[in-house]
Design a protein around this nucleic acid. Sequence first.
DNA 1: CTCGGTGTGGCACTCAGTACCCTCGATTAT
DNA 2: ATAATCGAGGGTACTGAGTGCCACACCGAG
Lengths: 242, 242
Amino acid sequence: MSEVQEQDRAAGGGPARPTMRDALVEAAFELFSERGFEQTTIDDIVSLAGVGRRSFFRYFPSKEAVVFPDHDGCLADMTAFLAAADPAGDPVEQVCDAARLVLRMYAGNPAFSVGRYRLTKQVPTLRTHELSVVWRYERTLAGHLRTRYAARSDGALRADVIAAAVVAAHNYALRSWLRSGGEGDVGAAVDEALKLVVDTWGGGAEGGSGAASQDDEVVVMVARRGTPMWRVVQGVEAALEG
Amino acid sequence: MSEVQEQDRAAGGGPARPTMRDALVEAAFELFSERGFEQTTIDDIVSLAGVGRRSFFRYFPSKEAVVFPDHDGCLADMTAFLAAADPAGDPVEQVCDAARLVLRMYAGNPAFSVGRYRLTKQVPTLRTHELSVVWRYERTLAGHLRTRYAARSDGALRADVIAAAVVAAHNYALRSWLRSGGEGDVGAAVDEALKLVVDTWGGGAEGGSGAASQDDEVVVMVARRGTPMWRVVQGVEAALEG
DNA sequence: CTCGGTGTGGCACTCAGTACCCTCGATTAT
DNA sequence: ATAATCGAGGGTACTGAGTGCCACACCGAG
C-alpha cells in the first residue's frame, strides 16, 4: 500500500541508497496504518523490516522522522534552487517556485502523501513534527527574501511576512488536495492560491516584473490598472531605496 | 456528571500561597538556566522544588510544557476575546488586537520572556514545542477570520494567509525585542510591524464602534472528574487573568 | 595476509511519561 | 465521636524512546 521511492537529488548522482532505509519506512507505514503510531514500537518496526533496532536510529533521528523521510532532501533541493535563482528576478515568484518544489514531492507520491496526511492529522506528536519541518522551509524562503530585500528598511519584516504567506497559501491548497484523497489538480490549486500572494506582495504578477531590476539606474514601475495608489507609492519607494 | 468549581484567590493583598505549580516553574528555570535543558532531569526539578516526581506531571503534560506555563491561559483569553469581537468591525484589526494579547503576556514579564527566549533558541525540542504553541494561536486567528470571510469565495484561503501574516509580523517584532534583551518599546514595534499587514489586507468593513465591554465578573470553571490538574489550573488561570 | 574504514547487530543504560496504589488531611454522614 | 468519602500528593514499578559502547562482518588497499 505504502510505497516509497527515493528520488535522486539534484546535487550529483547519489547512487542507490541502501535499501534498508526504504525497508524501514515501508515497514513503519504498514504498522502505523494498521495499528496506529503510538501503538507501534521501534521494535515492531525493526523486526518487520528484519533489521537491528540500532540501525533504525542510524537512519532516522526519532520515531517521528520516519514519517517524513523525504523532506530533508527536498529542503536541500529548495536551498540549491534559491541559491541559483536570478538576482534580477521577482523574489516573490522565486519563493513561490521554491514552494512548488515541495508540492511536486507531495504530488509525486499521492498515495504516500495521503496516508501520511491522515496519520499526521490524528497524532499530535506527528503534527508537531510536521510543524518543525514546515518551519525549516519557511525560514529558507524568508532567508532568500531577506537577501533580496536587504536594501529596504523594512526588508526583514517583509521577508518574514511574505514567506509566511507563501507557506500558508501553499499549505492551504495542499491540504485541500490531501483531504480530498488526492483527487484533482494540485498544481492548479496551488497556483491559484499563490496567485493571491503574488498579486498582493509580488512585483506585479501579470505582464512584467514590476519591481525594478536593480542593475542600472533606469527604474520601471509596472502596475495593473486599478492598483491602489498606496501600492504604487510602495513600489516606487522600493525601487528608489535600492 | 459532576463538576468542580474553582473559586479561590483570596482577596487579600498577598500573592496567595506559593502554589506548587509556580514552585515547579521556578525550580525548572533555575536549573535550565544554570545547567541546560537536556542536562536537567525531572527528578532534579522536583527535588529542588521539594515535591514528588509524580506531581510534576499533574501540572505539566511534558518536560517542555513547563517552559511555556502561561500560553494555555493566553490562548483561552484570545479565544474569548475573538468570540466577543464586534461582527461589524474589521476582522484584520481584530486578529491584530488578539495578537497583541500575546504580546502583552510577553511584555508583562520581560526577564522571564528573555530567559525563555534564550533557552528556546538553543534547544531544538523547545523550539519545536514553541512552534506548536504558535500554531494554536495561528489556527485560532484563522478560525476567526474564516467566519468573517465566509461570504467570500476565497475566504478560507484569505483567512489562512492573513493569519500567517499577522503571526509572522507579530513574531518578527517580538523576537527583535527579545533578542535585544527586552530593551525598547515592544508595543510600538509590534504596532509598526502589524501596520504592514493591516495596510495590505485590512479594511474589510468599517463599522460599529462597539468596544465589547464585558461587565460580568462571574466565572465558572467546569471540569469532568479525573481531569488532569494542569488542565484545570490552566483554565482557572485563563479565567482569572482576564 | 593484515590493516583500516564502514555498516550493522547486540547489549546495557538513562530518562520521560504512565499506571497503580498508598498515605494524609479535610469534610461529611451516621 | 467514629466511619466513610474524596481529593491532593507521594512512592514504586513499568514501558518505550533514544544513546553509548563494543563486537562482528565485509571490503578495498597494501
